[in-house]
Write a protein that binds this DNA or RNA. Structure first.
Lengths: 143, 143
DNA sequence: CGCTTTATCTTGACCGATTCAAAATAAATA
DNA sequence: TATTTATTTTGAATCGGTCAAGATAAAGCG
């Protein structure tokens, strides 16, 4: 299986063990884009009821570090994860209900990647979050 | 005093009372850009030792809502505040130590404000966070 | 200016996402 | 299959931040 082979290779190259929790967490996030940690824990336990929440937290952190997952955490909301990585896309977040959707940046492949004055920082990523109201909350307000 | 008059006017226009905690919090954030809540509490208490942490939390939230303050909260870091608002600037955050600096966007006044596909959201703000390493952490790594 | 109303503050308990730590388990290697 | 040690399990702890009830003080009025 592609997903399987992918994670195995990445883990081994990083000298990390290929464990059930790690594989299950990657699968769960792939199946549930933008899910929060609790949702992922539940999804993982559908298949493997004995996996602890701690193992899920650890796996999420490791997979994020290795670049297999990406963490999204808008102000005032808990962490969410997605398996769509490396394509430089961004997110719209609803101020009212926290709904989240993917957006490709209007500018192109590397939007805003260069700051006008980087203060000596070596920048490797530009993260963009668009804030607004989702369609549901808009109509709820006018109603 | 400009700051004073400014906050009074904004609060009254919003039908909010002008209270000591609110004025003190705005002054503290102005004096300590990018400070976290605890730092602001300490600063406020230098002048007004009896102000509670709750009042500071409430004031920060209110002033942020009214647009007098802006909250910055990069992943894995606690909330910080700044009084520089309305000029559409962004931030660089150090992945290693959490250091934070202001950046004006390279693109111009309204960087990336228009998403390619907004999924029906009405977008009012595009927030950009540049991730990287600050000068200190860069030299620490090579050393 | 003192009185009334009620928004705001103080106090102190509480919450929930995440982390820590120690003992138990299982992946990798020989 | 046995050994090593990275990972996981378990369960407590941490810590920003929030909630709630009673006390206080801004704002408006006589």
């Amino acid at each position: 299986m592609t997903t399987f082979g992918g994670i195995e290779k990445v883990l081994r190259e990083a000298s990390m063990r290929v464990t059930r929790p790690r594989v299950a967490v990657l699968a769960a996030v792939t199946a549930h884009p933008h899910a929060d940690t609790e949702t992922i824990i539940d999804a993982v336990r559908q298949e493997h009821p004995t996996i602890s929440h701690q193992a899920v937290y650890d796996s999420l952190k490791l997979l994020t570090t290795l670049g297999l997952l990406r963490q999204i955490q808008p102000h005032g909301h808990i962490a969410r994860y997605e398996a769509r990585v490396g394509d430089n896309h961004h997110h719209v977040v609803c101020r009212s209900c926290g709904a989240l959707a993917d957006v490709d940046c209007a500018i192109g492949a590397s939007p805003c990647l260069h700051a006008s004055d980087d203060h000596g920082f070596s920048i490797d990523e530009a993260e963009v979050i668009y804030w607004g109201l989702c369609p549901e909350c808009q109509s709820a307000k006018t109603a």
